[in-house]
Design a protein around this nucleic acid. Structure first.
Lengths: 267, 267
DNA sequence: AAGTGGTCTAGACCACCCG
DNA sequence: GGGTGGTCTAGACCACTTT
């Protein structure tokens, strides 16, 4: 407090003003401030954060408090620390681990990015499930339907609902602007960065439409993966359901999810 | 160091001597020491840990260092902290969240514990997958085969491989000693506590044997869940595969697992 | 009132990486 | 050598829970 009186150290341009309720713990406010900057795309993946000591000086708080905030952000995979180098906004690796959970890979067993065909893109009525997940107040959303194709057949049908406010720019995008990797496209075109995913898997009988598009028999089984994707603050920004032939399904659950309350049961 | 000279404060009986390599960070050694005590069953779920200040005094280290160690153990769900009360060994809730991932629940939609029938229990040849996962040096394991039954039919077949050293006591157990909940039985009979689970899911065509036991047609689809269960130190103590009718399958993946490297890919 | 964990401070020294 | 994050110290004060 005494040091503030000198008025010498203003908050540098690259360190945002502290956000969040003053009743929250200091380290939490730092967390929220930084998560906000990342979620808003003002700090982009790969960007270097200011040094811990600089942040502490800028906010006039103890270095240990800054450290605790950064620890928490690192735990949540929003940032990455590299000893001796610095701290950086994390770049989620959703792309390269592609298709990890399919039995069916390339001929050589390697992962690859399947062909992607946009079947529909526009404003559409939004069903209750995505509407609730996305927190929409009106039953309208940007709808993107894609076929994922490999080995000469449609292997996957994706129906993707997006909040219109964040994704309006997608409607004006040309098909080749989008490309096969959607999350990088979200970032490029709409400034939305996905940091977190929740999924629910089920095995169902194929609907007649799905069966036709996937070239299955009516009554064959399909897997269904419902996904909610979230930004750095935890806000839901995408809801999708993917369906494909159940026989090609494979999935890994990492230890992290097995223990927390949110996980699953034991039998 | 100066304080040690007085020789007044010996390490109390309930605080174990510090373990782990002296080259490790102090907080890591505290972590490993406590994890060891929990894994060995010397500290059991529900037990109260000593107060942070007492631990710090006993090891002659700063309270902040102890705090960091406990933070890490709490992150890994080995302990639970309750403000104003104390810190306790965590009791994994593998039981009550039972059957979370099945479409099929009780008539009223509530979770329940299905009937359990031990089909086989003894020493058996151990296939390569469980042998490797469990780190066995000889191809022998305790094998437990169970049928899980509800609504008047066998819904699930479980083949469970256990390391003989830890689970020898299970061979002498009477059937009703084991009961429907296996992990509590491990703790009761063998002193083994499960803290972590990894699973891999696939959809397969039923083998003739599985089809017969599950009353499916040959060629019908089954889900297969391969699980590795680990103790507090991360050592694998159980390998199992569960199979059942694919049509009844449902699974949730919590956000925690979606982000870390171990998780899965995106399509 | 006493004891617990939760937050925060204000440093110190080290290991690591870069130019 | 100079800057970064990693570890550790030795406290202070607060919020919460039990007796």
């Amino acid at each position: 407090m005494s040091r503030r009186a000198s008025g010498v150290e203003a908050v540098p341009i690259d360190i945002p003003a502290l956000m969040g309720s003053p009743y929250l713990p200091l380290y939490r406010r730092v967390c929220e401030t930084f998560a906000r900057m990342i979620a808003d795309g003002r700090w982009r993946p790969g960007d270097a954060l200011p040094a811990e000591t600089d942040i502490a000086r800028a906010y006039n708080i103890a270095p240990g408090t800054v450290r605790r905030a950064l620890d928490e952000l690192a735990d949540n995979r929003l940032i990455e620390r590299r000893q001796g180098i610095g701290t950086f906004v994390h770049r989620p690796n959703f792309d390269n681990a592609m298709l990890r959970f399919f039995r069916f890979r390339g001929v050589d067993g390697a992962a690859f990015v399947p062909e992607s065909r946009v079947v529909a893109l526009g404003i559409a009525a939004c069903p209750p499930a995505p509407m609730e997940a996305l927190g929409l107040t009106e039953p309208q959303a940007v709808l993107l339907v894609r076929h994922r194709i490999w080995d000469g057949a449609v292997r996957l049908i994706e129906r993707i609902y997006l909040p219109p406010r964040r994704f309006a720019a997608l409607l004006d995008a040309k098909p080749d602007e989008i490309g096969p990797l959607l999350y990088p496209a979200y970032e490029r075109i709409c400034g939305q960065v996905v940091f977190q995913i929740e999924e629910e898997i089920a095995i169902l009988e194929a609907s007649p439409e799905d069966a036709a598009e996937l070239q299955l028999q009516s009554g064959d089984l399909v897997f269904s993966i419902e996904r909610v994707a979230r930004d750095a603050t935890g806000a839901a920004i995408e809801w999708r359901v993917s369906r494909g032939d159940a026989r090609r399904f494979r999935y890994q659950v990492s230890p992290a999810s097995a223990v927390p309350g949110g996980g699953h049961g034991t039998i």
